[in-house]
Design a protein around this nucleic acid. Sequence first.
DNA 1: ATTCGCACTGCAATCGTTTGCGGAAACGTA
DNA 2: TACGTTTCCGCAAACGATTGCAGTGCGAAT
Lengths: 357, 357
Amino acid sequence: MPPPPPDTEPGPRTAPVARRPTLKDVAGEAGVHPATASRALNPETRHLVSAETAQRVHQVADSLGYQPNPIARSLKTARSASIGLVIPDLTNPLFPPIVRGIEDVLGGIGYNAWIVNTDNDPARETAAVESLRSRSVEGFVFATARLHHPFIERLAAAGTPTVLVNRRLAVSDVPSVTGDDAGGVAIAMRHLVELGHRRIVHLAGPQDLSTGVNRLRAFRQALEDHGLEDSPARLKLCSAWAETAGARAVTELLDDGVEFTAVLAGNDLLALGCYDALAGRGLSCPGDVSVVGFNDMPFVDKLSPALTTVRIPHYELGAEAARLLLERLRAPDRTARSILLPLTLVDRQSTAPPRPS
Amino acid sequence: MPPPPPDTEPGPRTAPVARRPTLKDVAGEAGVHPATASRALNPETRHLVSAETAQRVHQVADSLGYQPNPIARSLKTARSASIGLVIPDLTNPLFPPIVRGIEDVLGGIGYNAWIVNTDNDPARETAAVESLRSRSVEGFVFATARLHHPFIERLAAAGTPTVLVNRRLAVSDVPSVTGDDAGGVAIAMRHLVELGHRRIVHLAGPQDLSTGVNRLRAFRQALEDHGLEDSPARLKLCSAWAETAGARAVTELLDDGVEFTAVLAGNDLLALGCYDALAGRGLSCPGDVSVVGFNDMPFVDKLSPALTTVRIPHYELGAEAARLLLERLRAPDRTARSILLPLTLVDRQSTAPPRPS
DNA sequence: ATTCGCACTGCAATCGTTTGCGGAAACGTA
DNA sequence: TACGTTTCCGCAAACGATTGCAGTGCGAAT
């Protein structure tokens, strides 16, 4: 913290402070060896020193305002009380709540997170992870997982504590915490059929992402469960979770003359694209077609019509991911478990019974 | 990084690697003393070692994949290649772009940022800063500044490199990077009067924040510049940048019977509140009243009507703040300068000529 | 009375760098 | 030849903690 905090204030300070006290300082003051002070201050080793010594050390530490130097500690212990958090892009409104969830539980026990944005660039990802490893982070949480993600798989296989959030790997035992996509589309579909919809299309997201495939799979399952026809025409694969992709998909649907009264969008952005495309064709929502989104992003309740969508508890996703990682750090041998958080439907204005034909 | 990366792969690896190479390793391999290796690898001190030795050390370093250990370096140098970034709440869509701007320029030179959320709680702020200082961060950027913020003032006065982003202090020489609020409201007001509006109200934000007072001040200036009456009735102080506050303000205005054809909201959230209140009274926007926001938050272009607003280049704000901080770290004595970034009006659907009366 | 165990604490090495200091060549100049 | 300068490099001491090991003193067991 350059330059050295000036001690120029004419305050009542007497001691040659200015420098923050070190362990040696409190040891000196308490009349013990630094090693003893260390043991006294560390809960793990506190039982190695007599009660009265420990107490004395603690008092001195408090009075001096001693704060252990995490850097020195890290150097010695190769632990750092920090983790790496790898996300695609903080600017995507999906991620801030996840990040906060993680940071809030981490902060509760003195941990911190390094955040890196990859912009979905594998090169940036490996570089960032390498950089974080050299900073001795104790583990990673990835929000960038693709279905097949050799890099993460290798990292985890090599024993680096790793947890996935929001997205999972295709087949692996890397623990993850995600929303229950299957359950989510199930309730969304039930909602639509209860309104009377029979011809429902799905705008599926990228199929190299677990969210994309899981929602698609669940869509087809729902079709079957409700005895609806699984027509390939009523399915559009979108190559990106983007508004433009959603718009393109439904205009294509419209152009091809496929009939539908409702669309289940793979996420809110795709749903936004729907809005655009429908408006572009003079169709009304929910009058002509109902649409339901996925994620419940901020402000989708402000759209016209307010978007009916499946809410994902992103903050809790993050919080659980942090807890899971912490657990793995503490007990690396415990078998990893993954967590599926329940999703809920937020019923707003973009869904209504189909127009009687 | 526990447990030690298993060296079980039957690959062609021969050396007893597994542990990442240290400076001593490359020194040994290169046949020099670690100190020499250190000097050879460090651009600052490279001139202290002969060209050929330096080259040899570099080669060995590359071949071993040597990466300096930032922890050890930090311990020795009391520098850390990291800074603290203090924001109110990452979940507020204002901040992610700022954060990315900062991280992108920092990352370009090997720096990283610790992010902490204060939720506007001074206690959390001081605790977080203290914790960051013990991690030897080299400086801070604050996005939490209130007009009077003794804590930040003291910190900066004590010589800690500090820069403010998005908000400034009332009176101080702490450098800051903010949008040119005065210019922003000027163009917004010009836009409104050019449309023909004469009775314009302002929803002012919290007056303990620089953004709140600056926009208010500029509003009155604009009134004067355009020869419009500065009526206290046409001004509402909102105690928070929140939708509800905005809504309350305009319903009060309406209840009080004050006449206006346009509202300049202190920010987009307040503008959103306007929308609600107007709709609640059966008034149309922009038919009955025009509204312009401030910030150009994500998705305000999706509202109905799409919000006309003053765009703040948040990413650039962050980027500039990072550059400023870096400059201060390099040349602490250079006098601090503050930066004002130009704002632009994004003309969308929420403004129109007033209804002919 | 000797021995053993135990509780407690100090010693010193260590983590991986950086850096002030001094010494040894090598070189130029008088 | 002698002497001052450079240039280059090694030595060793830091930075602030943690921890294996060993030593001390004490009470209890034999």
